[in-house]
């Protein structure tokens, strides 16, 4: 029994001139719910495709549940559940036909978990999958995934496009059904509100590299928001230690910084600040700032700063 459910070693994937994954070293331990966060193009989908053996890497290696990802056997696949935002299911089949097929194929099928999860959604067994609404299909897909009794459950933006009710039902099923008791869950999302509620561990990917991995509140504690009143131009952004984001609002300088203690106030005063304040930030803001650092900024905003 390996300690890590996912282990990548300098994993690289190249598409033309772009590197979707850039020497990624990722080690996700067994157990708990891990949230994977990253902007679009951070490489999450590519990572999962490679981990499940549907895409070969350009360089490096990837192991999932201790097995080489390019050589997964049918038994291995039976232990890994995967749900993505499209909730792809054969549209022409009936719900009960799909369920029967899954029931027969997965040896650890948990009927009770299936019913518990599906019970949140208004899905009739004789309906065709193509007739279900997006939320119903998502619920059905999740019910199938949980009932498979996986050791590892990977969810790639599963609540995208769901309405509020469906979203809540989905999260409840994920966190409170006993189907996930022995299961490691990897949850990808853009929605910080969800992540904050759900995650035990926060993993941040950016441009194909691992940027951060820790508990969410630990990460949040590293980011602080400083407001300074600097009458002149202010320090060169490149010289500001740990700078994530800089905004000029109403003549005040707003700094979002990483890993800065109280001595940052000294730095600001030394740069000519008349008054300095700081406050903690929400997880949403912290992650946003962290990711925005490497994003392209429209030229107008850069000129202003």
């Amino acid at each position: 029994m390996n300690d890590y459910v996912i282990e990548t070693d300098a994993l690289t994937k190249r598409y033309g001139r772009k590197l979707a994954l850039d020497h990624l070293d990722l080690r996700i331990p067994r157990g708990r719910i891990h949230a994977l966060v990253g902007a679009n193009g951070a490489g999450k989908s590519t990572l999962f495709r490679i981990l499940l053996g549907f895409l070969p890497p350009t360089a490096g290696s990837a192991r999932i549940l201790g097995r080489d990802s390019q050589r997964l056997t049918p038994e291995d696949r039976g232990r890994i559940g995967f749900v993505n935002e499209e909730h792809t299911l054969p549209g022409w089949m009936r719900v009960n036909a799909v369920t029967d097929m899954h029931r027969r194929q997965y040896p650890r099928w948990n009927e009770e978990a299936f019913r518990n999860v599906l019970g949140h959604y208004h899905v009739l067994p004789e309906q065709k999958v193509g007739q279900l609404s997006r939320g119903e299909r998502a619920g059905f897909n999740l019910a199938l995934a949980l009932a498979q009794g996986p050791e590892l459950l990977v969810l790639d933006e599963p609540t995208l496009g769901l309405d509020v009710v469906a979203k809540r039902a989905f999260l409840e099923s994920l966190m409170y059904s006993n189907a996930t008791d022995d299961c490691t869950v990897i949850y990808c999302s853009h929605q910080m509100e969800e992540i904050e509620r759900v995650a035990d561990n926060l993993v941040i990917l950016e441009r194909g590299r691992l940027m951060h991995m820790s508990a969410p509140d630990e990460f949040c504690a590293r980011v602080t928001h400083w407001v300074a009143d600097i009458p002149f131009k202010g320090p060169d952004p490149r010289s500001v230690p740990g700078l994530l984001q800089l905004q000029r609002l109403d003549g005040l300088h707003h700094y979002l910084v990483l890993d800065q203690q109280d001595d940052f106030a000294e730095f600001l005063r030394a740069s000519g600040a008349r008054s300095v304040q700081s406050m903690p930030v929400s997880l949403d803001r912290a992650v946003n700032g962290f990711l925005a650092k490497n994003h392209a900024t429209p030229d107008a905003q850069r000129a202003q700063a």
């Binding site: 049918p74 696949r77 054969p90 997965y106």
Partner: peptide
């Protein structure tokens, strides 16, 4: 199509 292919082949069946 990538998502459909994944759904088809990612199961405990050779």
């Amino acid at each position: 199509r990538p998502n459909t292919w994944l759904n088809l082949l990612h199961r405990p069946l050779a």
